[in-house]
């Protein structure tokens, strides 16, 4: 579960004011809003990447407001995949596992599993240069899923993809969410995308949540 309680946060001159909402465990939440409405700021605040002026962030029964991002156990997929340029696909997928000191065999097993889910097997030994936008997004998704996060935050992950790839990714996201049983908060301003994926919809307007 994600619960946001009267959250205030700044991004430059922009301010999120008194934002509260709740997304129950295992559901797919879609957060919509115009460009500049504060969607990314909110997602960053949930992930621990942005300083919160006041309010609380709860994950399950835990108040994680003062926790560093590493401790929150949130898988984050930004708008641009932000893959690590020096790592091969296998190392990208295993990055969080390596940080957590999983054994080599456990890492390999989990990476293979994730690669099968996302259709990345043929790419595992490749460097990221020259991969398509859709492939990069699938790798970013796999990298965030590999350590079995309790929450997945997706910041417009499909916005830069062509229609065909976007449709395929939409289907993939829905099936992956069900398979992993993870709670997902997905930002988009594409109503079709929201309609296909959302169990719950939230609208952010001028720094406030409207249901």
């Amino acid at each position: 579960m994600i619960r946001i309680d009267r959250l205030h946060a700044h991004a430059g001159s922009f301010e999120l004011r008194d934002v509260s909402f709740e997304l129950p465990s295992g559901l797919y939440g879609v957060l919509m809003g115009k460009t500049g409405s504060g969607k990314t700021t909110l997602l960053e605040a949930i992930c621990g990447l942005r300083w919160i002026k006041s309010g609380r962030v709860w994950l399950g029964e835990e108040d994680v407001t003062d926790w560093p991002p590493a401790r929150r156990g949130i898988g984050f997929v930004p708008q641009e995949p932000s893959l690590f340029p020096h790592l091969r696909v296998r190392e990208q997928l295993g990055f969080a596992l390596s940080v957590r000191n999983w054994s080599t065999s456990e890492q390999a097993r989990r990476v293979d599993e994730i690669a099968d889910w996302l259709g990345l097997r043929p790419l595992l030994e490749r460097p990221i240069h020259g991969l398509s936008g859709g492939e990069c997004q699938r790798i970013a998704l796999g990298r965030a899923l590999a350590f079995q996060p309790r929450v997945l935050c997706l910041d417009e992950p499909l916005s830069a993809l062509d229609q065909e790839t976007r449709d395929a990714m939409c289907e993939l996201l829905g099936s992956i969410q069900k398979r992993a049983g993870v709670t997902v908060l997905h930002i988009t301003h594409n109503a079709t995308e929201a309609g296909r994926l959302a169990d719950r919809n939230f609208f952010l307007r001028d720094g406030r949540i409207e249901s």
Binding site: G48, F76, E80, F84, R100
Partner: peptide, 15 residues
């Protein structure tokens, strides 16, 4: 360099 990659690393467990 876009700091986003470092931010992603933070969410993946890095200090």
């Amino acid at each position: 360099m876009n700091p986003r990659a470092e931010q992603v690393a933070l969410t993946l467990g890095c200090g």
